[in-house]
């Protein structure tokens, strides 16, 4: 299949970006990133600079891919990362617009690569359970209701890709933050420092320059791990509870 790619090129964080159009020949069995590999090989053969895009595991779990395909983070397929998106979902002759994730808190580094270390800062502000190695009691000493463990797991499947922020018209990180708060807060182990965690993580999230949630639910729709906005509601009430009843 023949495709026309309109790709965002930007030399570095400071310079101005622009769209450049390329033609590439792909097959329907390729993954989207393999199609970009073909383009890059072509560019290298022409002694031009290849397009920089982040990727690593290519099996949908590391969360490195960070591009917006025709206006949608990770492209048109639901619950699918860019690396798992295959070209059979595109049509011969189609024009595909590829841009980096856009949000103030995710500055563009080069071409399609963005800086998502603001997510790490949010986790560092409290996204953990304070337990040193060796302090743990026996694993079975804390029974956890199966459904509750399942719920915590659903929130914990977040891969930290940032598609939620990218999809949000406000560049809000509520889905990411709430997923971590839910994962840890739902479990009895994490309950002890729950109030402190919630307060600190929300404050850090605000500090990083993410926008405010206006409940468009675009995050949920684009999340490759289908994390629910139920978590956002939980964060809202946990935060209020933490502020209103905390010391």
């Amino acid at each position: 299949m023949n495709l026309q790619l309109k790709i965002w090129r930007q030399k570095n964080a400071e310079s101005k970006g622009y769209f450049e159009t390329y033609k590439v020949e792909a097959t329907e069995h390729m993954s989207f990133l393999e199609m970009l590999d073909v383009l890059n090989e072509q560019l290298i053969q022409e002694k031009k600079e290849p397009v920089v895009f982040e990727h690593d595991c290519r099996e949908g779990i590391c969360g490195a891919c960070s591009m917006v395909i025709n206006g949608q983070p990770h492209g048109p397929m639901a619950a699918t990362t860019t690396c798992q998106l295959h070209m059979r979902h595109f049509k011969n002759g189609q024009t595909i617009t590829i841009e980096p994730f856009r949000a103030k808190a995710f500055p563009i580094l080069k071409d399609l690569s963005v800086d998502r270390s603001s997510f790490d800062s949010i986790i560092q502000s409290g996204g953990y359970i304070s337990v040193n190695t060796g302090q743990a009691p026996d694993g079975n000493s804390i029974p956890i209701e199966k459904d509750l463990a399942g719920k915590a797991f659903d929130a914990a499947t977040c891969i930290g890709c940032g598609a939620c922020v990218a999809a949000c018209p406000n560049g809000s990180a509520m889905l990411f933050t709430s997923a971590k708060v839910s994962h840890l807060g739902l479990l009895p182990q994490g309950e002890v420092e729950h109030k402190r965690r919630v307060k600190n993580m929300v404050e850090q999230m605000d500090k990083e320059g993410f926008g405010m949630c206006s409940n468009t639910k675009a995050c949920e729709a684009e999340c490759p791990k289908e994390i629910s906005v139920e978590n956002i509601a939980r964060l809202n009430r946990n935060y209020m509870n933490s502020i209103l009843t905390g010391e």
Binding site: G139, P143, E145, A156, H183, L187
Partner: peptide, 20 residues
Amino acid sequence: DIIDQCVAQGVPFAREYGGL
């Protein structure tokens, strides 16, 4: 010890209906 440590950290391992 690894299992104990990970459970304490909040790793959501699969559980039975009895919670174990």
